[in-house]
Structures are given as C-alpha cells and as structure tokens.
Design a binder for these strands. Structure first.
Lengths: 170, 170
DNA sequence: CCAAGTAGCTTAGATGCTAAGCGAAATAGG
DNA sequence: CCTATTTCGCTTAGCATCTAAGCTACTTGG
C-alpha cells in the first residue's frame, strides 16, 4: 500500500505497466470528471474543450472523429460551450459548410481560480527530480500519450469490423 | 511535435506539469471511454468496475462516495454490471442493510482478448529504461495518483460550501 | 422498545447520447 | 456548364442514465 517497497528489476517495470498505470488511469478519469463538474460542464463537454485547448481550432467533424461522438452530439456540445463562452464559431472562408471552433483563452476568474490552485499543487509532482530523471519521466508520458491514442484507434477499427453482435445473453 | 527537443532544466519540469500531464489526462479519458465501449459498458460503469478491481470488494455507498455519484445512480450501475456478470452481490453478514460488491476476476474471453493485446503493447512503455529511471517514473506516477485524489476531494468540499449559485447568465 | 441514523432502492424529471435523415456547399465527371 | 456524389453541420425521435427526493429495512443508542 505504501509507495516505496519495490525490489526487482523487471518487477518494477511490471508494476508500472500493470498496476500503477491502471490506477493513474482511474484516478485521472475521476479527476477529469470532478473538474468538469466544478466548471459546470458535463464530462463530454470538458473533454472536447480540452482537445480544443490542446490542438487549437478545428471543425466539428474533426472533434467528432477524435472523440468518437456522433456529429449530432458535437452539435450539442458546441452549442453549450458557446453559450458558456468557452469557444467561438467562425465560418470557414474556404468552405462554406465548415465552422471553425476556436477556444476562448481569456478565461473567467472562475477558471483561473480553479486551475491556479491546481497548478501550484502540481509543482510538487516534479519536486526533487534531477534532469536525467525528468527526461525519463517526460519520455514515459510521451509514450503513454501515443499509446493511448494508438489503442483508441485500434479499438475503433475493431468496432467497425465487428459491426453488430448484440443480445448475446439477455 | 516530436518528443525529444527539450533543453532547459526547470523548463522541462514545467513542460511535464503543464503540457504533458494535461495531454496525458485527455488521452487517458479518451482511452478509458473507448475501452468502456469496447466492453459494452458506459463510461460510468467502467469507472466503477475499475475501482472494484483496484480496491477490491466494497459497498455501494463507498462506491458512491469515491465516484461522486448518487446512491440512485450506483444502484443502476450495480444492476447493469451484475447482469453482465462483472460483479456479484452478497449481503454483509454483520449489517443486513449493506451489500458487498465483489468484482468477478475470471474474465470472459472477450476481456482477455482486449486486455491481452493492450498489455503486450504496454510493455513498450518501459522499454529501455534502467532501474533508476523506472524508480523515478514509478514515483512520479504515485505522486500523480495522490494528486488526483487529493484535488478531487478538495473540489468536492468546495462544491459543498458553494451550494447553489446557478442560472448565472441564462 | 422506541427514536435516530444509515444503506440501498424507487420514482419523476431532466439531460445528453445515438441513429437516421435533412439541406447546403464543395467536388468530380462528362 | 450541369449533374451526381460526397461532405458538413443541424434536426428530430427515441433511449439510456444521471440527479433529487422520498421510501423501506436494518442497526444502534438510550
């Protein structure tokens, strides 16, 4: 239960990939949901907004493709986020069908308060590590990000080829 | 966009806490949701099941406290997970009101297939790191888990003291 | 035994997602 | 230039799931 009783070599690697990463995943999902509630957003809205912050402006159909939502759901997400002033919509000058969704960065005092406090706390995550250790951590996180998106893509394509196989033991 | 062009000391720490952790968070949420869909579960059901796997058997009210769900929502979650054979319910011999929710570990071939493939892929996450680097990574993940649960607890208590302040610009 | 607290379930209402289909705009082919 | 196809975002109907409130059953303390 404490965090400092590992001994072996490959054991530690296994602990990271099997146990720690899984626990971090669950904790992250809970955290993400709590932040969404704190901001008055649903989890889906928060997820979409995060993607807009990370990747910059994009269209609704891109957002649907990344999140796996239908375009109908994205319409609702965009309408709520726009009403709450978290994004703006502009028509694409080169394609009249598209609308460019642009995240609003001049955050409200509400958001500054929440994330300011979080950011201060987050400094403790990297306290005491030297450059070499930080580089290893950064590399691990980068690989984890790639891993997640890679597996999401694989699961989506599997889902397509699996089509419909429902009512399997009702 | 590539993952190997950092130079400074504290810059790297900032990149980890501000940028990389956030991107990992978003990727993790998408991943978690995709796994849930792959298993035929909703995101909430999957989150609860993960908690049961991690922490072992618990009661419904504990699950509600950890996830922030109402007890009514937990009732629905438990009913669905039980029907899908992901958990069993036993009455608590010492308290007739409680029901002990026990996760089922003899997973279906479905689950073995999904997570077997994922586990093989995950081995690449730690490839090439030495013991020292792995220890740093493990420590960082442990801190991140603690961080997430700590901030969730803080946000929940803030939400209580904030009570009702709705309809703020409809 | 009775009062108060706790655990889980039920109900009503609201929200948000999917699936299917629409019109408008861009592209391809003749 | 003109039509056919594709793509984009929106609308609608239906459904799943969450919250809030109240209920019953059980436990605990006087």
């Amino acid at each position: 239960m404490n965090g400092s009783m590992w001994d072996g070599r490959d054991d530690l690697a296994d602990v990271i990939t099997s146990d720690l990463s899984r626990r971090l995943s669950t904790a992250t999902v809970l955290f993400h949901h709590a932040v969404a509630e704190r901001l008055g957003l649903g989890p889906t809205d928060h997820k979409c907004l995060d993607l807009l912050y990370e990747r910059g402006a994009m269209t609704g159909s891109e957002l649907a493709a990344i999140t796996g939502l239908t375009t109908g759901a994205v319409t609702g997400v965009v309408a709520r986020l726009e009403k709450a002033r978290h994004l703006t919509r502009e028509p694409d000058p080169r394609d009249g069908r598209k609308q460019i969704l642009r995240p609003v960065f001049d955050a409200s005092p509400e958001i500054v308060e929440v994330f300011g406090s979080i950011r201060d706390d987050a400094a403790g995550l990297v306290a005491g590590f030297d450059d070499h250790e930080l580089a290893a951590i950064a590399e691990f996180i980068s690989r984890s990000i790639d891993f997640s998106y890679r597996r999401v893509a694989i699961m989506r394509t599997e889902a397509i080829s699996r089509v419909k196989e429902k009512d399997h033991d009702r």
